[in-house]
């Protein structure tokens, strides 16, 4: 049974060229199994974000194929993109919270979009907030939170819909060492309950400590996927 179904993401000879000629990714191929935790490393401009954008179909590959859940997302119709994204949680470096809404409303957004009933929304939002340790901040506006807390709200929003796949783009970029370690621990916990996690980072120290697979990009090429 551990055949194709266990492969969650597959890049097959993928290149991405932006208008203007810059090649952000060249001939990248790899697979990520369901339940894995993988680090995506490389310098700024190495193509980490482009790779993630291809997975959530914010961009489409110029060449090659990208498969998510066995679906060729490079050929997916526009109307099938929203359901795909609902099954992927994304954490941003600058967390992208809505500052005119409470923590609760921020975290609830994916559930409202997915069409959950009011009561179920409340239940899941509280569960997500308790996982990231922010149960008491439900009614607070994000502006009143520290950087680390804001990032945890972003994570709660990413996991509230219980996605199979969690993508994080430099989630610890603006945080100090202690907070970074905490955030990483959170991702590790999600991975342990079965969520596939992919984290783009240039914090090599954190990466080496967790002893997970690494995809290293250099100028758009995959140089190491030990």
């Amino acid at each position: 049974m551990h055949c194709l179904a266990t492969v969650l993401i597959r890049f097959d000879n993928v290149s991405k060229r932006y208008p203007g000629g810059k090649e952000a990714l060249s001939r990248v191929s790899f697979e990520i199994d369901s339940g894995e935790m993988v680090f995506l490393t490389g310098h700024s401009g190495a193509g980490k974000s482009t790779l993630m954008k291809l997975i959530i179909v914010m961009e489409r590959a110029s060449q090659g194929q990208v498969f998510v859940h066995g679906l060729n997302v490079n050929r997916i119709a526009e109307k099938h993109i929203p359901p795909l994204r609902r099954d992927i949680g994304v954490v941003f470096q600058n967390h992208q919270l809505l500052f005119d809404r409470t923590v609760y409303d921020n975290v609830a957004l994916p559930l409202i979009i997915a069409g959950f009933q009011h009561r179920e929304v409340g239940r899941r939002v509280r569960a997500a907030l308790s996982k990231v340790g922010l149960t008491d901040k439900e009614r607070v506006l994000p502006i009143a939170l520290s950087g680390g807390e804001q990032q945890r709200v972003g994570i709660a929003r990413a996991v509230v819909n219980r996605p199979q796949l969690l993508l994080a783009d430099e989630p610890t970029g603006n945080l100090d060492r202690g907070l970074s370690a905490e955030i990483m621990k959170l991702f590790h916990q999600f991975n342990q309950v079965g969520v596939t996690v992919m984290i783009a980072t240039h914090d090599l120290e954190l990466v080496s400590r967790l002893k997970k697979r690494q995809l290293q990009l250099h100028e758009g090429r995959l140089v190491d996927h030990a």
Partner: peptide, 13 residues
């Protein structure tokens, strides 16, 4: 703008 972008990224139609 931000709200629209976030909504689209978390799967809003």
């Amino acid at each position: 703008r931000t709200e629209i972008e976030v909504v689209k990224l978390v799967g809003g139609t």
